[in-house]
């Protein structure tokens, strides 16, 4: 197998797996049960999406996609921090009332 063909096959398989991972982590976002579970799944979803974009960068050979992937990872991190803080402050503000 030539290197180009191997790369094409590997990126196809990787994109398939990452797409499946996107779907599966969406299941956890939907079923919850707590907000923290959903935030965790959302965090994983951004990492998976980052991997997806990076795999597209390999498949198309456009390295510009790499910058998008890194920016996405940064965005996911900030979103997780913000949501974690929100989980904490929401409980403190509402004085222990359930959601």
């Amino acid at each position: 197998m030539s290197p180009a063909a191997a790369l094409s096959l590997a990126s196809f398989v990787a994109l398939l797996m990452l797409g499946l991972a996107l779907l599966i982590s969406t299941v956890r976002i939907i079923i919850g049960p707590t907000l923290a579970d959903r935030v965790l799944a959302l965090d994983l979803l951004t990492v998976v999406a980052m991997g997806f974009v990076a795999a597209i960068a390999i498949r198309t050979g456009l390295t510009l996609y790499l910058d998008i992937a890194i920016a996405l990872a940064l965005l996911g991190f900030l979103a997780t921090i913000a949501l974690a803080r929100y989980i904490m402050s929401r409980r403190l503000k509402s004085g222990g009332a359930p959601q």
Partner: peptide
Amino acid sequence: DLLVYTGCVVLVLGAAFTLIASIGVV
């Protein structure tokens, strides 16, 4: 060539670990 083949293996391995992570989360 060797770099590309290694890259292929690493790519599939990374995708597999991500898939396992999402399976684990569920």
